[in-house]
């Protein structure tokens, strides 16, 4: 979708590496709105000439024929087919190159980037990481990842509220992701829209923090239904907030009984070891 006007032509998102010249917004389409409205459908008066054998039968209708040529085309197509198709291509590419891909989703401010920074810093000696950052605007998150010396690329979606599989396809090519690595995609901070868009990832990881409501899994069930892992972040703040961890888990399990939980504090480091253990195991 166009980041400037909301119209749907062209590729309106921009992909940038930290340190690259950054245009405010890539204008990849022009805004000409020429509509052609001259539909001439004159089916009401017909002169039919019927040559039959050797005499010509010419008659003129003084009543109007309502010739309706309308017909129904059976389409039966999934509306998200283009995203799903590209996601499948991405998945095949990742599989062939043994790239383990995580789609990290959450509402804004749950600590996605801090969680990511800590994971990268602590595990970069053991795992080759690559990161795709998704935000509406700015290179801020990519710069934070760049600061811990991990190859990173930023997708700015403009007004878009989620990443789509074609953006990942473009970003992966530009990022030159190596074989046998772990690719982490930090989605746009939004607990609603990214739920519907498969990017081709192996695992979807949803983060909630204890400064949010513990009923979030019930309020935004789609995201929890589509994830395999749930990280409960900022547990060091539990003594100060009204968040019941067991209740949050119970709600999340109602939505998705197969969810796997990790309770962590990305800033203090609590619980991160268990998460690392899991990541190293699935990575192998």
């Amino acid at each position: 979708m166009c980041g400037t006007c909301g119209c749907g032509t062209g590729n309106s998102f921009s992909i940038n590496k930290p340190g690259e010249l950054h245009h405010d917004q890539q204008e990849s389409h022009s805004h000409s709105h020429e509509h052609n409205h001259d539909h001439t459908h004159s089916h009401d008066l017909h002169d039919h000439a019927h040559p039959q054998n050797d005499f010509v039968h010419l008659h003129h209708h003084d009543h109007s024929h309502e010739h309706s040529h309308s017909h129904t085309i059976d389409v039966e197509k999934n509306i998200l087919q283009f995203n799903d198709m590209q996601a499948s291509r991405n998945r095949g590419y990742f599989e062939a190159k043994n790239i383990f891909t995580i789609n990290l989703v959450s509402s804004p401010g749950s600590g996605k980037t801090t969680f990511l920074e800590r994971t990268l810093t602590d595990l970069k000696s053991k795992i080759d990481f690559f990161v795709i950052e998704g935000d509406q605007q700015t290179l801020n998150d990519a710069n934070r990842i760049d600061a811990v010396q991990i190859p990173v690329i930023q997708i700015n979606t403009g007004t878009g509220c989620h990443l789509e599989s074609d953006m990942i396809y473009d970003a992966v090519k530009k990022l030159e992701v190596k074989d046998n690595s772990v690719l982490i995609i930090e989605n746009v901070g939004n607990l609603v829209c990214p739920a519907m868009f498969d990017l081709g990832e192996n695992q979807r990881v949803v983060i909630i923090s204890v400064t949010e409501g513990d009923d979030k899994p019930l309020k935004y069930p789609d995201m929890f239904a589509g994830s395999q892992i749930c990280i409960i972040n900022k547990i060091d703040l539990l003594p100060y907030v009204n968040f019941n961890v067991e209740k949050a888990k119970e709600y999340a399990k109602k939505v998705n009984p197969n969810l796997l939980f990790f309770e962590v504090s990305a800033t203090k480091g609590d619980g991160m070891d268990i998460w690392y253990e899991w990541l190293l195991k699935v990575k192998r």
């Binding site: 017909h71 059976d74 509306i79 998200l80 069930p221």
Partner: peptide, 29 residues
């Protein structure tokens, strides 16, 4: 999505239908 089984109360379920997002047909003039 978090509704449970009315008979046994389990939350384990497979969705049979309801996630459709489909263009069924188009009519021409």
């Amino acid at each position: 999505i978090y509704d449970n089984c009315p008979k046994c109360g389990s939350y384990f379920k497979s969705i049979l239908q309801g996630k459709e997002l489909r263009v069924k047909s188009l009519d021409t003039y």
